[in-house]
Design a protein around this nucleic acid. Structure first.
Lengths: 317, 317
DNA sequence: CTTTTTGGCCCAGTTGACTAGTCCAATTAC
DNA sequence: GTAATTGGACTAGTCAACTGGGCCAAAAAG
């Protein structure tokens, strides 16, 4: 593996590309152990931190996984293949645009600068968009840490509140878009019929890491399932069944110290609705696994949403 | 005029855009005096240097002109209109590419980063291209300060040398491309017939500022025209005639101190071939205007050349 | 002429990206 | 158990871009 020292491309970016290439070319299949950071750093004569940054970003993209003391491993080749093919598509268009720009007499620097400025403008515009997220359970109000792109403002609202309070209705009219789970879509469309804002249905799925952790623990153990509402508990159970998991449950709605102290010691692990951790923490027995159950939109829904936002922006400005 | 302080776009870029807009919208027609740097800086609450940078870059692009003590003025609205329409074309493609990328699940930051890296790669590749520039007059060897984009390496070569020396022939074979004036194109194609490198004809025109300076001085004055070869002197005269200028000349080939001392005092101004200034300087009478005559490829030729280089690069890598 | 206006120029401070060095903690090997 | 390996986290230095202030010189105004 070698770096181009004169190209001006940051070393860690070059490294990422080379690692990507080795994976896509099948030289490093899934599960391969990558060279340790120190070793690779020494072999290409850069700081370990440079290697570390490359590894870490690829880890963040789901391509690699690192564990202290063990090493860094190729995680998911299918994912990176897919990413690469998408990236290739984008790069083809970028090349096209670049040649067009050069043909029109701009330099490559000009072009990059155009894109840079244009990108900042778009981000700026996006960050001014306000999106209402209509949910039916109070637990969902807190579970909105999705990556919509930098600074799209997501305002969670309870459907029941919306039905009762005219204040909430007013609040909606200031938004640029409303989203909700597909199962509630029809209902929401009727409710917001008079307001002329676009409504988008998104489908939620449990976060993969959540499912994996539960799967690892679900052999011969009983779980405590702690929620604020029965509906949410049912939602979680349904999601687990759909993932092929049928663990034994003790369901605890509206937890307080008394019933927590009673139930928890009888269980092998705890599954929590989001933001309930602090209520359970003091009562939690030593060494007991405690899993917050998060939902997130699937990739398709996210793309749909992102695209819709960009289009909206186009109309707005 | 107002700036967006939160957008992250550098102030001087925002300023440039706003000034551009005022010009394209006809609010500031050609000849308009812009607010002095201090005044504008105060009114939008930034440092004068920020305004200065915006003005200066626009001056570099030929849109504005500044003069100490006088002010900054709108130079050429036609130019900027043309620039803007070209830029719009590019931006349309950029937007398209951006939406494609976002639709494929990338963030805008990802996209900008792709373009950034891709741009650096392309520049890097371009900077490794070697282009031979075949000229017929020794004066042209020195007149190659065109902006081909950062770091394209241009190697001027005399045609007569190429015909005689096999060393020069070898040199050519290491190049990626050869260019020459359109009038010599056929000749060069035969000469390099065996070498399999692309040959491009470009058309040269005198630099606009050179012509303008001569036009200003050409009323009732006789010029001294100092060159190294008769051909080049004729080239210059022809170019001037084509620009509608018919000044009186005293032509001086292969200047030395003696004939310079004899001829110069009888003239109102001097026109020099490139790089002859140092030979004339000591003999030059006080206050006599001295103009270096430069040729450059016209915009169309430059674009053709740039495009050809980008294409070549595509094949090479 | 002197004073005012105006751009040219240089230097300082801030910020962020990049690279590099060091110590710490988890894991493995013995 | 101990020692070696390995990634995590933190700090420091470098560099370029951006912004800001001060001084100078050319032009204009009086």
């Amino acid at each position: 593996m070698e770096l181009d020292r004169k190209s001006g491309v940051p070393y860690y970016i070059q490294l990422k590309e080379q690692i990507r290439r080795r994976i896509t070319q099948g030289i490093w299949p899934a599960g391969t152990k990558l060279p340790p950071e120190r070793e690779l750093a020494k072999s290409i004569a850069v700081s370990r931190n440079t290697v570390s940054q490359a590894y870490k970003e690829l880890e963040g993209e789901g391509v690699l996984s690192s564990a202290r003391g063990k090493g860094t491993f190729v995680e998911d080749t299918a994912l990176i293949m897919q990413q690469e093919s998408r990236k290739e598509k984008v790069l083809r268009i970028v090349d096209l645009a670049m040649e067009e720009a050069v043909g029109l007499g701009f330099s490559i620097d000009d072009f990059v600068s155009f894109v840079h400025v244009r990108g900042m403008e778009k981000k700026d515009q996006l960050s001014r968009m306000k999106v209402a997220y209509l949910v039916s359970n109070p637990e969902q109000l807190a579970d909105v840490n999705w990556n919509l792109g930098p600074g799209v403002n997501l305002f969670p609202l309870l459907l029941s509140e919306l039905q009762e309070s005219p204040r909430a209705q007013e609040c909606i009219s200031g938004m640029d878009m409303a989203i909700t789970g597909v199962s509630r879509l029809a209902e929401v469309k009727i409710l917001l019929g008079k307001q002329h804002i676009p409504i988008l249905g998104i489908s939620l799925q449990p976060r993969l890491d959540t499912i994996v952790r539960i799967a690892k623990l679900s052999i011969g153990r009983e779980f405590a399932l702690v929620c604020e509402s029965n509906q949410y508990a049912e939602k979680i159970k349904l999601a687990l069944r759909q993932a092929g998991l049928y663990p034994a449950f003790r369901t605890l709605i509206q937890p307080n110290e008394t019933n927590l102290r009673e139930v928890l010691p009888q269980c092998g692990a705890v599954i929590l609705a989001p933001r309930l951790r602090f209520r359970v923490e003091k009562v939690l027995p030593e060494n007991m696994e405690c899993i917050e159950f998060h939902f997130e939109p699937d990739a398709g829904s996210l793309n749909l949403l992102r695209g819709a936002l960009l289009e909206l922006k186009g109309e707005k400005f």
